[in-house]
Design a protein around this nucleic acid. Structure first.
Length: 393
DNA sequence: AGTCCACCGGAAAACATGGCAA
DNA sequence: TTGCCATGTTTTCCGGTGGACT
């Protein structure tokens, strides 16, 4: 059964005039070398290598915007050191948690414990119970646990810093084992809201990852493109065009790679022999449209209804306010025979739609006429949203 | 100078759902 | 089964806002 599929993949892959190995451009692909991050790798490795002498390294906090290689570097270095640990004669394990995907206290601690090899139920236990089990498991095992917490700014904003506080001080409870934390954050200001004790402990060692510039992005893309594309299927000019677009958007390497991959896919679909600048332009649009369509179609019913009313009003008047939207929404929902949500909730939904980038909501004070959100929609995505909203009738 | 609008947005709590342990 | 727990959504309550208007 699976042979059939494997074979199919191989044959369509082989038939491609564009791609040699598309995997190389996938977001989760970790390359063997990370260009322009040699210094960071070296520094982190030097810092962590003291585990060879059985010493616990201090915690590390890594800053940098998205797509600057923070996660890749951290995982790379930790993986290498864990691989080496056997020959170093140390007990070493690692855990990686993206606290944006795993976004509650319970799930974070459960995930850390799970990666140590502990079975933890998905729910049903108290957080403190899971924590206790984790501590016990650590003590029984008696090694050093390197825990990478990715995107912790996101987590702390949602859940506060209680868990971090516990983790930072966990070593005081441990006699037999140790824990090292590596925190990764996109937001440089986030430490300021942290409990001072957490801040000083977590930030004992700090590393900053600057964004890539166009030139560096170019080498990164070039390196991947050589593996990913059939020779001659993409020119240096096209690669540097991708790099330039991504550099304009805060030097995000992930975006640059996406762009390159989608451009390749478009070229392939069109049966072209080569990826062109035009394909890259199309890719840029397609990525954006896909994002909008996806987010809208997965929205729950009431979110969709609110969005629909916003669209109606904006099309008529150019902008809308919370009050107008709510009124229209209530009428619509009543017609459909449902119970409307409260205005408080709808206000929140509008804020969420804003955060998702579907609408632009700005809080405006109109003096005598009170405070409200003035809601607009970017004209170029209106059609897109309507398309995704079709099923509402 | 003071009023007052029309909402904002934080906090707490209710409610629903799903799961563990004993 | 019973009781406790996590999680996500929504409601209830309510203090707060800041500039147009009187």
């Amino acid at each position: 059964m699976s042979e059939i599929i494997d074979d199919l993949i191989k044959r369509t892959g082989a038939a491609s005039k564009i791609f040699m190995d598309r995997e190389v451009l996938q977001p989760d692909y970790v390359p063997d070398t990370l260009p322009h991050r040699e210094n960071e790798i070296k520094r982190l490795a030097e810092h962590l290598i003291v585990v060879a002498r059985g010493v616990r390294p201090s915690n590390v906090l890594i800053y940098g915007l998205t797509g600057t290689g923070k996660t890749a570097v951290a995982r790379y270095v930790v993986r290498k050191i864990v691989e080496k640990s056997a020959s170093l004669g140390t007990k070493l394990k690692d855990a990686y948690v993206n606290t944006r995907k795993v976004d509650t206290t319970y799930r974070v601690i459960a995930e850390i414990a799970r990666q140590l090899g502990l079975m933890v139920p998905y729910t049903g236990l108290a957080v403190s119970e899971v924590y206790r089990r984790y501590v016990n498991a650590l003590e029984n095992w008696g090694g050093l646990h390197v825990v990478i917490l990715d995107e912790i700014d996101y987590y702390v904003r949602r859940e506060g810093d209680d868990l971090l506080y516990k983790l930072v001080r966990i070593n005081e409870e441990l006699s037999n084992s140790k824990v090292v934390l590596i925190g990764i954050t996109n937001d440089i200001n986030f430490v300021e809201n942290l409990d001072p004790r957490v801040r000083s402990s977590l930030g004992e060692v700090e590393m900053v990852f600057p964004p890539y510039n166009a030139e560096q992005l170019y080498t990164i893309l070039k390196q991947r493109a050589e593996k990913a594309f059939v020779p001659g299927a993409i020119s240096d000019g096209v690669i540097s065009f991708c790099a330039a677009i991504a550099a304009r958007e805060h030097g995000d390497a992930r975006r640059a790679l996406d762009l390159l991959r989608v451009a390749g896919e478009i070229a392939e679909r069109e049966g072209a022999a080569e990826v062109t600048v035009e394909h890259v332009r199309k890719a840029s649009v397609e990525i954006e449209e896909g994002r909008v369509y996806q987010t809208v179609s997965f929205l729950p019913l009431h979110q969709k209804l609110v969005l629909k009313e916003i669209l109606e009003i904006v099309k008529k008047k150019g902008s809308a306010t919370t009050g107008e939207v709510y009124l229209a929404y209530v009428n619509r929902v009543r017609d459909l025979g449902y119970e409307p949500l409260t205005q408080r909730r709808v206000s929140e939904i509008i804020s969420q739609l804003d955060m998702m980038g579907l609408v632009l909501a700005e809080v405006v004070n109109r003096g005598r006429h009170g405070v409200t959100k003035v809601i607009k929609v970017k004209p170029d995505i209106i059609k897109n949203i309507e398309e995704a909203l079709k099923d509402l009738g």
